[in-house]
Simulated assay, not measured.
Amino acid sequence: MSRFPERLREDLLRLGLSDYEARAYLSLLTEGPLTAMELSRRAEIPRSKVYEVLGRLEGKGWINPGEGRPAKYSARHPREALYIWRSIRDREMRRYEEEALDELENVSSAVQEKEDILIIIGLEAALSSVIGILGRCDEDVFVAIPEELTEGLDELLGALVGRRGRTSVLAPNADVARSIKRKLPGALVRVKSDMFGGGAICGASEVALLLGRGRGNSSQYLTIRADHPGLAALARSYFEHLWSLASDSGVE
């Protein structure tokens, strides 16, 4: 990949491609149609991962389906690929917005009736809320750490040490991701630099959603904490969407 400008690779990562996907697309774009094994060699992608990478690129609209025997894959024209990818992301975001609206309206109508749905104000309180959920969770957890919470990273990770369930973490940058892997070697970690807010999900119901600050410099940091299966399912769906756009480059 050294023959491609680093800025170009970073742009593709910001657009939602993983490092392997960026390598594959650039190789197909510059070298023409390639078989999976040829692409594995040219783009330095492990054979065990190359078909998975090609499948994701096809699903995102960046490449054409393989043709012939053995199948050869080709890159779409960049303008066409970006148009398709933008359309896919716009459809996904509209779906998430509709799902979020339905669930948030349900939450809004239940806030005064249910003691297990709380609005939390302040960044320190947000961190404490996330740590509380992680510390008592015996199920799989999914954590998205925004930049604002990195100052309390050690305390947050301490709540995850020694857990038996699976731990999946989205980090805001590669340095934080490497710190997480050092302290939690068994965790699945990816980097997503442009997250809006963050949060933690425990199993199928408990969730803390970090909404960030409202408008104005003096606005308080807001968090929703709930034991609500619908809200947790929505948060899990959005986490998986961000995970699919995140990069594992530089994490190890």
Rank of each mutant, 00 (worst) to 15 (best):
L188G: 14
S244A: 10
S40V: 03
A81N: 01
F142N: 02
G230R: 09
R178S: 03
S108Y: 13
V50R: 00
N173M: 09
M1I: 11
E113V: 12
P185K: 00
E124Q: 12
E103K: 13
S244G: 04
M1H: 14
R190C: 06
L34I: 04
V50I: 10
N173D: 15
H77P: 11
V161N: 00
N217W: 13
K114A: 10
E21N: 02
I145Y: 04
C202N: 06
R225W: 10
G230F: 07
C137F: 02
V191D: 06
V143T: 01
R178H: 04
R7Q: 13
A226W: 05
E105H: 14
A171R: 02
L242T: 05
S179C: 00
S27D: 10
I145M: 01
G230S: 10
A100R: 13
A235T: 05
G162R: 00
D154E: 15
D138L: 10
G135M: 06
L118P: 03
A208S: 10
V191Y: 07
P70H: 06
D175Y: 11
K60Q: 10
I145H: 01
S87L: 12
A187W: 06
A226S: 02
Y51P: 02
T30S: 12
E97T: 08
L39M: 00
R42V: 13
S48A: 14
S168Q: 08
